[in-house]
Amino acid sequence: MNVTTADDTTSTGQAGPLTGTTDRGTWREFFVEHAIKAAGISMIAIVGLIFFFLLREGLPTLGEVPLGALLGTRWYPIEELYGLIPLVIGSLLVTAGSVLIAVPLGLTTAIYLSEIAPQWQRDILKPLIEVLAGIPSIVLGFLGWVALAPLIQSLGAPTGLTAFTGSLVLAYMALPTIISISEDALYAVPKEYRDGALAIGATQWQAIRMVVLRAASPGLVTAVMLGIGRAIGETMAVMMVTGNAANMPAFGPAILFEPVRTMTATIAAEMGEVSQGSVHYHTLFLIGILLFIITFAINSLAGRLIGGQEQRRKRGQI
C-alpha cells in the first residue's frame, strides 16, 4: 500500500509540469532554512553576549586601578598590586618557547613522514600521533610535573618548574596538530611535481625544498597556526609546571628557566577566591579581555597569512 502511494507520488511528480516544489517540499525547505538561520543567529548572539559580559565585568578595572598601576611589574592582589606585565610576559615566554620548539620539530617530522619514511613506519607513526593528540592536557601537565620538572632541575635550574618546562609541555601538545595537518598538506602535493623536479636533475632534498614545501605552504601555515592556537589556549597543564610565580622574570640568557605564571593560569587559579564585583574580580576579567584580543589578533593574522598565501599561490608567486 505504502509502496503504491510512493510510486504514485513519483509518477505524478514526473508527469506533471516542473513547477518547482510540491507543497511538502516547500514546507520542509522553509523549516530547514529557518532552523539554520536561527542556529546561525543564536551563535552570533551567544558570542556577542560573551563579549558583552567580558566587557561589563572587565572594563570597570580601568576606572578602579590607574593605568600606570596596571602596567606595573608586580601582581600581588592582596596588597592591591595589579601589575599585568609579569603575567603577559609569562604567557609570551611560555608560548614563544613552545612555538620555537614545536614548529621546527613538527615540520621536520611531517617532512620525514611524508617524504622519506618507508610505508611501514608511516603505518605505525600516523595513528600513534593521532593517539597523542587525544591525551588530556591535565595528564600531560602531571607528567611534566613528575618527570620533566625534576629533569630540568637536574640540568642546573634552581627549580624545575619554569617557563621552559611549560614550553615543553605546550610544544608537546601542539606537536600532534602541527605534524598531522602538515603531513596531510605535504601528502596532498601530487607526485607529478616531485617527478618533474627529479627529472630535471634535482636531488630529493631540492625537490622537497623548492617544490613540495612551496606547494604545501598554505597547509603548513594552517598547521602552525592551529598548533599555536592550541598552545595558547591551554591553561591547566601550564599552571602545573611553570612554577606559578607571578614575578617579573629576570631578563637574561636564562630567562626561560625561571618560574613564571601565564594569564590563563592566573584566571584559573584566582577566580575561585575572589569576591564578585571586587577590583580583583574585575581585573581578572580584564585579563580575559586581553587574552581575547590577543587570540583574535593571532587568528586574524593567521587568516590574512593564509588568505595572502592562497592569492599569491594562485598568482604563482609561491
Binding site: 601530487p190 607529478e192 617527478d195 618533474g196 636533475g201 623548492m210 617544490v211 612551496r214 606547494a215 604563482g316
Partner: peptide
Amino acid sequence: FQRPNPFPQSIYDNVAFGPRVL
C-alpha cells in the same frame, strides 16, 4: 610527462628551476 606538470609557481620560476638547482 603524460600530463603537463608545471609546478604551482610562476612561469619564470618553472623554467628557472633546473638552472637554479644545478
